[in-house]
Each structure stands twice: as structure tokens, then as C-alpha cells.
Amino acid sequence: MTVNLRIITSLSAGVAALLLLSGPSFADDQSTERTWSEIRSSVIGERVPEDAAGRLVLGAPMRAEDAAIVPIEMHLRLPKEEKAKVIQITLVVDENPAPIVGVFHFENGQSIFDLATRVRIDSYSFVRAIATMDDGRMYMAKVYVKAAGGCSAPAVKDPAEAQAHLGEMRFRVFADRGDAQIQMRHPNYSGMQMDQVTRLYTPAWFVERINIRQGEKTLFTVEGGISISEDPTFRFSYNSTGEPVTVEAKDNEGRIFKQTFLASGT
């Protein structure tokens, strides 16, 4: 029951309604927390994170339609009286063989910020987001997601098509909602996907770093891994200063992709 409660409190009301109605039947708390206890120190060190309630809300579907593209939302909402800021959020899928999905760095610290991306989930798992403050405190939110096979699911786009559009980017601004979206064409092969013809694994080929800045100021930097979905997409809080926005990405084969956009988007 503690699991249900914790999940419900860390989700938006709409998603919580789905949970309540569908009568979740999770694996027991112990078995699902077991993996986290095994990987925790490798992910965040020895510091024990506090509950993120009232600071960081993590949103994810209870049962994902497509395990290779599970939408994940992180809503950072530090209380007004909080002086410290969040300098990084680590996104983890416990049961993925490569559990660290990505680390989002905020060079200048953030108090209120929304971020959304799409991830691969390999088996029923807790998804967790750990926010690290500039004074070292950590806050953790988690959600249980039923999805499986996301790391080995075949790519949607065939290799030729992926190659032809490699590195193409789109930057869209949704001024009415105060956010913007970066979409990048890259197969982000997990290394766990079997080639349908040769029956061999396609080598891992993924974007390992993305830096997004407006003018000279970095909005955030992502260190990503193989658990980010094909064609990496990030949606984030955005208040334009009018200066151009530059996206610079590097993949694990050393390719650099860089593009500058008008502040108002493409």
C-alpha cells in the first residue's frame, strides 16, 4: 500500500485517477526496491535522498503503450522559501540493464522547471528522478511503470532512413505554455536491438551529450545513454530572451551535431 500511496502523491491528479480506477497489481515492494538497493550507490553515491513530495513531481503512464517510447515528465517545484537550487536531475529506470537513463545538468541552478522526454523501459520497473541541490541534499520521486521490451524493440525507422536524416533537429516554441521542444533525428540504438535480417545485435549508437543554450547561457545539458528513445526529444520550460538558441550534441562515435535556431523556433 505504501507503494500505491507514494506513486499517487508523485503524480498529477489526472494520472492518479487512472491508477485508482485500474486497481494496480504491482510486484511487491520488496522485490522492486531490491534492484534500487543494488544500484543506488553506483547511481547517487552514499547519500540517502529525501522524499521529493512538494518539490519534484514525476509523471509516467502506469502501463505504457509502447515500451520503446515511454513519456516521462519531471516537474521541479521548489518551495518559495527554499534558498538552494537544483543543479542536476538523474533519471533512472531500475530494471533497465543500463539503469541511468540520463543526467540533466542545470549550470545556473533551477527552482521551477519542467522537463519531459521519452525513454525505453525493458521490464516492469520503478522509474525514479533524483534531484540534487547545490548544497548536496537530494530528493527522490518514483513511479512504477508496467512496460517491457523497450530496450530490445526494433527501431521504428530503417537504418537507411535513420542515416539519411541523422542529426536533423527541430526546435519548436509553445509560447502559450511557456515551453519549447527539441527533437533530434538519431537512431539512439541501444545495442540490445536485434537486426531483423542478420539476427545479430546492432551496436549501441547513441547521443551521449546534448547542450542547449540561449545566447551564451546554458539552459541545460543532458548526459544521455542507451535508455533514451530513438529520435531523442526534450520538452522544457522556456522563456525566450530573444537571443538565438543553440543545440549541440555529440554521439558515442564522436559525431558532433550543432544547429542554431531563432528564439521563436523553427
Binding site: 531490491r34 534492484t35 539503469p99 541511468i100 521490464s123 530490445s152 545485435y201 545513454g225 542507451i226 558515442n252
Partner: peptide, 20 residues
């Protein structure tokens, strides 16, 4: 039950933890 193998070209520092 399937178990994934570590991709050969995954950077050495990447945390790899196939579920027990």
C-alpha cells in the same frame, strides 16, 4: 526468461546491471 548482454561498444564507465 531473456537476459540482455552488455553491448560490446558501450562506454566502459556505463553502469550495466542486468536484473537478478
Amino acid at each position: 526468461l531473456p537476459q540482455p548482454e552488455r553491448p560490446a561498444n558501450l562506454p566502459p564507465g556505463t553502469l550495466w546491471h542486468p536484473p537478478s
